[in-house]
Design a protein around this nucleic acid. Structure first.
Length: 505
RNA sequence: GGCCCCAUCGUCUAGAGGCCAAGGACACCACCCUCUCAAGGUGGAGACACGGGUUCGAAUCCCGUUGGGGCUGCCA
């Protein structure tokens, strides 16, 4: 496919240093409410399927998406699966699922580099034919050996095969011949214009010895072919950008795209998030009961802020106000505690029926027998549960007493509130008696229990504890009297008697 | 080692030379509200890495130092 790309020259015309910063407007002057007409903005998100899709990738995808939507541009999804060794089909599906989950869609793709190899092949042939690339038979081992032997050598490829005139063949990789002099500057909206001396760039591999293309080549070829105007990606790619640009020019890619190297997401030690050592998989958060809206909102605020003190932003608000120039340049720590807070806010803001629906999968995994779940009982308590959880995964423990044949007594709570609780036996006996005849409503139960407590010199707070533990098994949970009402008189009385028996026995 | 990037409360950030004796949010502490737990309310502690410049004036600009990170792969 090829997209006509002539219209966007103004995006990367040479400008004075720090032009990006200089285009900032006063915050008050940039209240925009919808897509902004911009010359054919085309961005791409290009994940590689080498593991679970993680939050850093999600953030990059989000920024690309926000930028595209803000400008009414085109968002392209491209799967960079040029490494057959490491890529796996299930990871591709995982990426698609995850993007769908947080509400990111795309206008073109998903394209797969594994299906576009002929393009890279063609580009490589051209570079070789024009003397911009050469075949090399050095192995990693032989390169390292030479580096070791020469004390003054800097690590890396030394250009050993540069002038040997080798032809392609078994065990030979194609290397790009980097210029020995000069430098390349990267026009970066976030970082100004970092400049790299060509002398520091080694001749890098663009075609592996098995003929497959390497990331740098495929990336440049595709960005040119897809007429990408803005490359928004992690800062870890910044150092390789001059190589990309050198390829870009060698392939006559035309004007360079504008880059935006977004700050990395780091762990508590300040290192970039790694799939291997950090908890980062988006699906883990989904399974933990994080709402996609909360995740999206939180992720959007990592490295970017709207400029006033608002934090809870609708996706529409983010689209309307997202500006690449406002993205910070320093790394951000992914703080799960703050995510949890956002999630609690989003859960409480849900209409009850949506909360019930969202909680369903987590309820299905509850500890009770599958047939014992009672939809209407849950719905009756749902509003009270909703305002007490921070994740959907916390829901089952709040309502399990409704669906289990007996109260799931927690040892700690039992010991503290019943065994060692003030007048526990009397309160349980009193409740078993009074609850048998009073009106079965929250207000009536409230009154009866308060009276019962007074008889033993206890306030309601203290008096309700033994009853709560006897009936729900725990000393925390939804309001007790509403819980009793939903549980029903008979089952409640049964649990009070059972607790008395247990206490005495 | 070389190259590049970065540097405001513990964390995410506001800040684009005077509006900042630095504001908000999460977390933390105290109190209030309260049938538990949450939620909510009020208050508190808590930061411009350091050193030089430029300027009447610097968290904001420049240089250096220190610290951190990234890249340096026939990974992306």
């Amino acid at each position: 496919m090829s997209h006509q790309g002539g219209e966007w020259g103004s995006w990367h015309s040479p400008e004075p240093k720090h032009w990006a910063r200089s285009t900032r407007h006063h915050r008050t002057a940039r209240r925009e409410t919808g897509p902004v007409a911009s010359p054919a903005v085309r961005v791409r998100f290009a994940p590689s399927p080498t593991g679970f899709f993680h939050v850093g990738g999600a953030r990059t995808a989000l920024f690309n998406w926000l930028f595209a939507r803000h400008h009414g541009g085109t968002n392209v999804l491209r799967i960079e699966d040029t490494d057959a060794e490491r890529g796996r089909e299930e990871w591709v599906a995982g990426i698609l699922d995850a993007l769908d989950w947080i509400g990111i869609d795309w206008d073109e793709g998903p394209f797969r580099q594994s299906e576009r190899r002929h393009l890279y092949q063609k580009a490589a042939e051209r570079l070789y034919a024009e003397g911009r690339a050469y075949w090399c038979e050095c192995t990693r081992a032989s390169i390292d050996e030479r580096t070791k032997a020469n004390a003054t050598a800097t690590p890396g490829y030394d250009g050993f095969c540069r002038e040997r005139g080798l032809t392609g063949g078994e065990g030979r990789a194609l290397r790009f011949r980097t210029p020995d002099e000069g430098s390349t500057a990267v026009a970066d909206v976030i970082r100004g214009e970092p400049r790299f001396d060509h002398a520091n760039l080694e001749d890098f591999v663009i075609l592996r010895s098995d003929g497959s293309p390497v990331f740098l080549l495929a990336n440049a070829v595709d960005d040119i072919d897809m007429s990408i105007t803005h490359v928004i990606r992690g800062e870890d790619h910044l150092s390789n950008t001059p190589k990309t640009l050198l390829l870009w020019d060698a392939l006559d890619g035309g004007p360079h795209p504008v880059f935006a190297h977004v700050p990395l997401l780091v762990n508590e030690r300040g290192q970039k998030l790694s799939k291997r050592r950090d908890k980062v998989a988006l699906e883990d958060y989904r399974d933990q009961g994080i709402l996609p809206e909360a995740m999206r909102n939180y992720l959007g605020l990592l490295g970017w802020a709207p400029g006033d003190n608002r934090e809870m932003l609708s996706v529409q608000e983010m689209v309307a106000e997202f500006r690449l120039e406002d993205v910070k340049s320093s790394p951000a720590f992914f703080d799960e505690r703050k995510l949890l807070h956002f999630n609690g806010e989003y859960i409480r803001a849900l209409p009850v029926d949506e909360f019930v629906t969202a909680a369903r999968p987590f309820l299905d995994a509850g500890s009770w027998a599958t047939g014992d779940f009672d939809e209407s009982a849950f719905e009756a308590l749902a509003p009270l549960v909703q305002e007490r959880v921070r994740t959907l995964a916390e829901v089952p423990a709040m309502v399990d007493f409704l669906f289990l044949s007996q109260a799931p007594i927690e040892d700690k709570a039992w010991d503290k509130r019943v065994v060692r609780g003030a007048a526990a036996a009397e309160l349980l006996a009193g409740a078993a008696d009074a609850y048998g005849s009073c009106e079965w409503s929250a207000t009536a139960l409230h009154e009866v229990t308060a009276t019962l407590g007074e008889a033993h010199g206890l306030g309601l707070a203290k008096a309700q504890f033994p009853i709560r533990v006897a009936v729900t098994g725990r000393d925390v949970g939804p309001p007790l009297f509403e819980s009793l009402v939903v549980l029903g008189r008979e089952r409640s009385l049964e649990r009070l008697r059972s607790a008395l028996a247990r206490l005495e026995g």
